[in-house]
């Protein structure tokens, strides 16, 4: 059965809509058309290293890292509790944790507006108990909160799925050999859960790093991240060169994290594990 031709329509599609756009990113990142002629240039890549953009990149990293850290600190215990055998209704709980992910990402981010606003619920509560209004939005806090809120389940699930797979008898063996609860955790459970942790960190960090929606909505445009700069280049400024160079930066980071996750991550959580 010569079915190879079945793939031809997709191959054409793939070439036009995946390969060419990718090429275009490289093309615009490394060429300049200012003089009417298309010339190779490193200007756009250099532009990334201007203090203005370096600051944005630094901020993006800083905020994504904090959000990832908070997700990890909040998520690891949650994953452990859900994975513990004596926890009843764990399936229901797990589904409940997963469910918000099905809700539109914009709506989830938007939902914090009515809580965080100056006229929002939290501030009304603070005022009513006499603490006075606090600026909750338009700052780093709000953006990090939005990231944590959106990506927390992405931290919990991979860690959980690794933890439940840990052979119970391995834990028993460690106890049998004289390890107390803390030692069992530090020497056995935590090291064995590393693949899930690596996956969770990547799954939280990368989308946080490339977001422009969370920062746009929760900081009211006051805080600029890499994503916002890219967005501006394509919707307002029209500087495709810089936008492409920044996109390339994100792609390089994805590529690096892929290598990292393939080495240390939980393959079964990765899409590759399915094939």
């Amino acid at each position: 059965m010569s079915k190879r031709r079945f793939a031809f329509p997709y191959l054409i599609w793939m070439t036009i809509f995946i390969v060419v756009p990718l090429f275009l990113i490289f093309f615009y990142a490394f060429t300049d058309n200012a003089s009417g002629k298309t010339l190779f240039t490193l200007e756009h890549v250099k532009a990334i290293f201007q203090p203005l953009y370096l600051k944005v990149i630094g901020r993006s990293f800083y905020m994504s890292l904090i959000a990832t850290l908070v997700c990890f600190v909040m998520g690891y215990p949650a994953a452990m509790i859900l994975a513990s055998k004596d926890f009843s209704q764990k399936n229901t709980m797990l589904i409940l944790i997963v469910l918000p992910m099905w809700m539109n990402f914009l709506l989830r981010t938007y939902s914090w507006l009515s809580l965080l606003e100056n006229e929002g619920l939290i501030n009304r509560f603070l005022v009513s108990i006499g603490l006075g209004q606090v600026q909750l939005m338009y700052n780093n806090f709000a953006v990090i909160l939005g990231m944590v809120y959106n990506f927390l389940p992405f931290m919990i699930l991979p860690i959980y799925s690794v933890l439940v797979k840990i052979d119970k008898s391995v834990v028993e063996a460690a106890k049998d050999l004289g390890a107390n609860g803390a030692r069992v955790f530090l020497r056995i459970i935590f090291p064995l859960s590393m693949p899930g942790v690596v996956s969770g960190i990547t799954m939280t960090f990368m989308p946080a790093l490339s977001t422009f929606v969370i920062s746009r909505l929760l900081s009211g445009g006051k805080i600029t991240l890499i994503g916002n700069i890219i967005e501006q280049q394509f919707t307002i400024t029209g500087d495709w060169g810089l936008g492409s160079a920044l996109s390339l930066l994100l792609m390089v980071l994805i590529f690096i994290s892929m290598i990292f996750i393939n080495k240390y991550g939980d393959e079964s959580v990765g899409a590759g594990g399915l094939l």
Binding site: D167, S169, E172, A173, L177
Partner: peptide, 10 residues
Amino acid sequence: NTVFQKYALF
């Protein structure tokens, strides 16, 4: 000390 059914090696 115990030797487990499926070894339970770390």
